[in-house]
Amino acid sequence: MNIFRLAGDMTHLFSVLVLLLKIHTIKSCAGISLKTQELYALVFATRYLDIFTDYISLYNTCMKLIFLGSSFSIVWYIRRHKIVRRSYDKEQDTFRHHFLILPCIILALLINEKFTVKEVMWTFSLYLEAVAILPQLVLLQRTRNIDNLTGQYIFLLGAYRSLYILNWIYRYFTEQHYVHWITWISGLVQTLLYADFFYYYFHSWKNNEKLQLPA
């Protein structure tokens, strides 16, 4: 494992911890899109099917369990927790996220590295992860005022994606046969979706202002 991959995994882990911390300690999910969180839960559930069949490393298994556990508990908090769910703004979080799922299923059936159940599910999870942030970005655009923790959560997610790209570049030059077009292209699309957010995030940071997206 190279430094970019490790740093990517850690920023991903921190992003989830920041979100759980926000929800658990201040008992609020204001500004968080349930739609995006449901999509992430589906992403991890379909990607980590191999947790029972393939052993890669203890690190790998632990991280998979953490991502599965945290994504489903975040969804549980927003939907079921009696205090947290009151802060969920259903009226603003209106992105039709179900419509993202079907195209990803079709695309995974058509474009995959191998036509097996596990491989198609893995590919589906990559396509879905690429677009899963969209409901969250739309919600941000609507609410405009973003609290610090929500801003940091999205920043860390974007940082994780960017570090994974550096990891792929590194692996491409250091490992033989390391060519994964599907992973790379969907990862690149996903990272590009953060470009706009990053621009405003750095702008507010540089000027020491509160993060605010333009209308």
Binding site: D50, N60, M63, F67, K114, E119, W122, Q176
Partner: peptide
Amino acid sequence: EAKDEDHDEL
């Protein structure tokens, strides 16, 4: 040689 189905990344 790494097989295609070896998904060692998260």
